[in-house]
Amino acid sequence: MAEASNSLRGKVAWITGSGRGMGRAHALLMAERGADLVVHDVLKDEAAATVEAVRKLGRRCIVSHADVRDVGAVQGLVATAQKELGPIDILVNNAGVGQHRPFEDISEADFDLMFGVHVKGTFFCTQAAVPTMKERRSGKIVNISSIWAMTGAGINKASHYCAAKTAILGLTKAWAKELAPWNIMVNAVSPGGVLTEMPIKTQGWDMIREKEKRVPLGRWARPEEVSYAVAFLASGEADFISGQQISPNGGETIVGI
């Protein structure tokens, strides 16, 4: 039987923040579809659990605990990955932090953390991955933004998070154009509500149930429902898609991005 058009067999995928939540779901779906994985998370136990699950699926895997804000460590990760698994074909910039805070209460440390992990992390992870993608004239970068990048956060009050996720859309659009001559596709996935540990911890179930009622489809997503969009964009099926955004958000319309 011919290889399925969405197969990731023979590809090396690097997923930042893949120790838990959506990042782990992306890793497992992509491993199921044949990719070898760079599992990357500052949380060691969580990363180890993802590694074990990926290996159970029969895929090759390395692990890194580098902080995405540490440019040197990230470059080291890429060198190791290349040696152990081969050049990186797919980068999913997924690592993130959530924080609910009114504007006046956001300290400089909060601000720096938010922009450090989301924006600086995405920027320098991508810069480290791009040279071999250019050489091979092939690459897929999927940046994880958020519906809040487009809508703002309303009652949750997280303007630093919203702005960091919007910056990721800026990078997506700019890189799509800048890297197109090397056949490198850059897209974003902007999830709406997803049932992962992060919102359960920061918002609590009562607030989540209340918010689910306001989603047109009446529910939040399972993490893998976001992974399907990521894996689609990472596959050969999306070779003509670049500079775009898919927002699995249960029916909110996005205007003016």
Binding site: G192, Q244, I246
Partner: peptide, 11 residues
């Protein structure tokens, strides 16, 4: 979970 969205394969 995707509804009301647009995918533009446009290069």
């Amino acid at each position: 979970f995707v509804t009301g969205q647009v995918i533009s394969p446009n290069g």
